[in-house]
């Protein structure tokens, strides 16, 4: 569904991504594993067009080349992005945040409505008119995912959804991701927490220093303690 080939990206002169190549199949959950600063966030931003991929890169989404396109065009094709730092509109209420994310429904998928999202994120239902700035970190994290789903994406990029959350919220987050997957969406998420990744993901790709070092199922990863020790230092 998403096919990335020879993706390089730079911040200024710093070479962040080197020849990243990844395949994501329809309906699967792929987790990008790696330490802080390994290039997971940049990979997602480059897919979304928020960081410009270097010339020569190819990012195909459902067969269409999207490298070099503007972020809003990429989003409208059905790619949803949930940033690591949440980026909730703090002045806007929960309902207004969802409205910003709203995009037309897409063939073959049941359109998301606020009510349907509140079923997955019951906390949000209790605070429809609360400004985003007066929500806790966990609530904001749920809102930022709900907001992206309002765009009826076919594939969602989730950047470190469990980061900085209390254990009970992490649990809810894992359930929410399972619900999103069950709704027929494809998911790419990034994580530093292998424990969490194991609960939600089908397949993993390990990134280190901007290079994809290893890909395979999570079961296969558990069978390779050397890989884990070398790149994830768990």
């Amino acid at each position: 569904m998403l096919s990335i080939r020879h993706l390089d990206a730079f911040y200024g002169r710093a070479h962040i991504l080197r020849d990243v190549t990844l395949e994501v199949a329809r309906g699967e959950v792929l987790v990008l594993l790696g330490r802080n600063g390994a290039g997971k966030s940049t990979t997602m931003k480059a897919i979304m067009g928020l960081v410009r991929p270097a010339p020569g890169a190819s990012v195909r989404f459902d067969g269409t080349e999207i490298a070099g396109r503007a972020p809003h065009e990429i989003a409208r094709m059905g790619l949803g992005y949930v940033p690591e730092d949440r980026r909730i509109f703090t002045d806007l209420t929960v309902m207004e945040n969802l409205e910003v994310g709203r995009q037309p429904a897409r063939d073959g998928l049941e359109p998301w409505t606020p009510e349907r999202l509140f079923a997955i994120f019951p906390n949000l239902a209790r605070m429809r008119d609360r400004p985003g700035g007066r929500m806790s970190g966990g609530e904001q994290q749920m809102l930022t995912i709900a907001r992206t789903l309002m765009g009826n994406p076919r594939l969602v990029l989730l950047d470190e959804p469990s980061e900085g959350l209390a254990p009970v919220i992490v649990q809810q987050m894992a359930e929410a991701i399972a619900a999103v997957k069950a709704a027929g969406l494809t998911i790419v998420l990034s994580e530093q927490n292998l424990h969490f990744a194991r609960r939600v993901a089908d397949r993993a790709a390990i990134i280190e220093k901007g290079i994809v070092r290893w890909t395979g199922t999570l079961a296969a990863l558990d069978a390779e303690p050397d890989i884990k020790a070398q790149y994830l230092s768990v």
Partner: peptide, 24 residues
């Protein structure tokens, strides 16, 4: 109005609004 809500959102974070599919 939707336009107004988008404007308020963009006042805070233009890039995020774009990433949600809004043509800035």
């Amino acid at each position: 109005t939707r336009f107004g809500i988008l404007v308020r959102a963009a006042t805070q974070d233009r890039e995020m609004v774009a990433a949600l599919g809004v043509d800035q």
